[in-house]
Write a protein that binds this DNA or RNA. Sequence first.
DNA 1: GACATATAGTCCTTATTAGAACTATATTGG
DNA 2: CCAATATAGTTCTAATAAGGACTATATGTC
Lengths: 147, 147
Amino acid sequence: MSRKSFLPIIRELVRCYQAFESHSGRHIRTLGLTPAQFDIVATLGNTDGMSFKQLGEKTLITKGTLTGVVDRLAAKKLVSRVASPTDGRSQIARLTSKGEKLFASIFPSHLGHLGRAFGEFSGEDLQHTEAILRNLRGAFERCGETT
Amino acid sequence: MSRKSFLPIIRELVRCYQAFESHSGRHIRTLGLTPAQFDIVATLGNTDGMSFKQLGEKTLITKGTLTGVVDRLAAKKLVSRVASPTDGRSQIARLTSKGEKLFASIFPSHLGHLGRAFGEFSGEDLQHTEAILRNLRGAFERCGETT
DNA sequence: GACATATAGTCCTTATTAGAACTATATTGG
DNA sequence: CCAATATAGTTCTAATAAGGACTATATGTC
């Protein structure tokens, strides 16, 4: 298989993601958060809180970064940290009541913003696009495992 | 169309891109460059140089960031800046001979690394995947234009 | 030629990113 | 019970990211 024939896919993936980031990030900033902060608020919404490990897994933000982002959300009084009752090493991050209100307000707004891109997609389009992306992700992840 | 039904696509796009970044970035770092630096070297390879404006368009690195990345590549003697002969505001960034050698050495290596992910893809798979990504990118970009 | 407007790149600021080293705590095996 | 190993989160570092303000230059109009 020609090595070059996959380059258009790489190019389209990068541009697609950047277009998404631009579309999404532009709106998030008007909400007074950064994309990483929004990601954490969205992940914590409608939960009782979760450990940093779980947060890192669900958001794919590396743990070195996660500490700082949670720090800034805590400084904004949107998130609080509580020591884990069961593991002395661990802390639980949880939305404060202010954070819950923010989540309740901005999450639907952001879903609406994102949804605008999908107005022309049929149900079949959506399922097909998801399947293709999952397959592509699997291809990259399988390479990662062999390292 | 249900607002929620596109969320799996968003999730898969983000995870797919992160898997790609992890797969690609890991290799680039072993080459002694950062992903943004590699992006610029790859974009300048096999050209006579280009303006920052053109570089920004081809790499989608914002100009505030671009100055710093080119600075660091210049400090590594991989890229040089020359004043534009036709526009007093503009500068041309170009690979040095050291940069050309690096490009010649690492670009095929990186293509090989990326190509490993696509070993199971048929020609039709590749074309189909590209078409889906282009369509999805178009959806996000069309939203950007209406702002 | 003068003036208004636009543009190229730089500088600045705040936040994020990734990963290694570190400390405190947990787990496992003998 | 103790030693070895693993893990959770923090700290640190250098680089990137995004966008606005700025300076120097270009362009267009009168």
